[in-house]
Amino acid sequence: MELAEPPTFENRDRSDIYDYVERHGSARPSEIRAALDMEERAFGHHMAILKRDDVLEERDGMVRIAYDQEAEEEEFHAEDVEFTIRQARQEDLTGLVGAIREAVGEKTYVDAETIADVVDSEGVLLRHNDLESRIFFVATVGDDVVGWVHLRHPELDKLSHTAELTLGVLEEYRGVGIGSHLLERGIEWAASQGFEKIYNSVPSTNEEAIEFLEAHDWETEAVREDHYKLDGQYIDEVMLAKEI
């Protein structure tokens, strides 16, 4: 499923079904049909077409935005850690939000902290509408989310070639290559969508993140002085970018 452009529908009912699922993240078919006050036979017909076209999918009785099933999971072995990197699913939401908040507990990654708050309040991971598209890939150890990479694409013509990226790994899992593999997956996805440039902004106090990105050929494009106020202190924002 390509996210560079939101899907368009010639049929209003199919558009309404998609919009409902996109807003809610996942829902039972009966819930969607009742909310839209749609006749059962017509609803079944439209759902069949949306599934056929890989726009929506149904798993465990829940309808959600269709996820890319190609190369969905990659397994890696590093030292004593075995981890998997894959596209995040709606059911990862709670673990992902918890991982982001734990990873940025020192409050040196404001954008990631904001993303966690937004996703938690909305209850939706994947966004793909007329205003924005967002996608997550996660690193998991067993059933636990231990890292993530997030890309957000504003649906504006003037910014159609760019995407914003955030990334993080729980402290106890750093230093074994998880962050590098997540970053690689995020860049690969962005390139496959036709993006030309990705951005990441962090407070200047987050030296570890800046060094990590610079080691992966990111460059500082600008510094906004005193952009953040953290614990009463004014902190510069470092804006990094990478062409892909």
Rank of each mutant, 00 (worst) to 15 (best):
E155L: 03
D157R: 10
D157V: 09
K158D: 09
L159E: 06
L159I: 03
H161P: 02
H161M: 07
T162H: 14
T162N: 14
E164N: 14
L165I: 14
L165M: 15
L165C: 13
T166W: 00
L167K: 09
L167A: 05
L167I: 15
G168D: 07
G168W: 07
G168Y: 06
V169L: 10
V169Y: 07
E171H: 12
E171W: 05
E171T: 13
E172L: 08
E172W: 06
Y173M: 10
R174I: 07
G175M: 03
G175N: 04
G175A: 00
G175F: 03
V176I: 15
G177Y: 08
G177K: 06
I178Q: 01
S180C: 01
L182H: 08
L183M: 13
R185L: 08
G186L: 11
G186E: 08
G186S: 10
G186W: 11
I187N: 05
I187R: 14
I187P: 01
I187W: 02
E188W: 06
W189M: 05
W189C: 02
W189H: 14
A190L: 12
A190R: 09
A190S: 15
A190N: 10
A190H: 08
A191W: 08
A191H: 11
A191P: 00
A191L: 10
A191I: 13
A191N: 10
A191V: 15
S192M: 06
F195A: 05
F195L: 13
F195Y: 15
F195R: 13
F195G: 04
K197H: 06
I198D: 00
I198P: 00
N200S: 13
N200F: 05
N200G: 14
N200L: 15
S201I: 10
S201V: 11
S201E: 10
V202R: 01
P203T: 04
P203R: 02
T205L: 05
T205P: 01
N206L: 03
E207W: 01
E208T: 13
E208V: 14
A209K: 00
A209P: 03
A209F: 03
I210M: 12
I210P: 04
E211G: 09
E211P: 02
E211I: 06
E211W: 03
E211S: 13
F212T: 03
F212C: 03
E214Y: 05
A215W: 00
D217F: 05
W218C: 03
W218H: 02
W218R: 04
E219M: 09
E219V: 12
T220H: 01
T220A: 09
T220F: 03
E221F: 07
A222K: 07
V223T: 15
V223I: 15
R224I: 12
R224M: 13
H227P: 04
Y228W: 13
Y228E: 04
Y228S: 04
K229I: 11
K229G: 02
K229T: 15
L230E: 01
L230D: 00
L230Q: 03
D231F: 01
D231E: 15
G232F: 02
Q233D: 14
Y234W: 11
I235H: 02
I235V: 15
D236N: 12
E237W: 02
E237L: 04
M239I: 13
M239S: 08
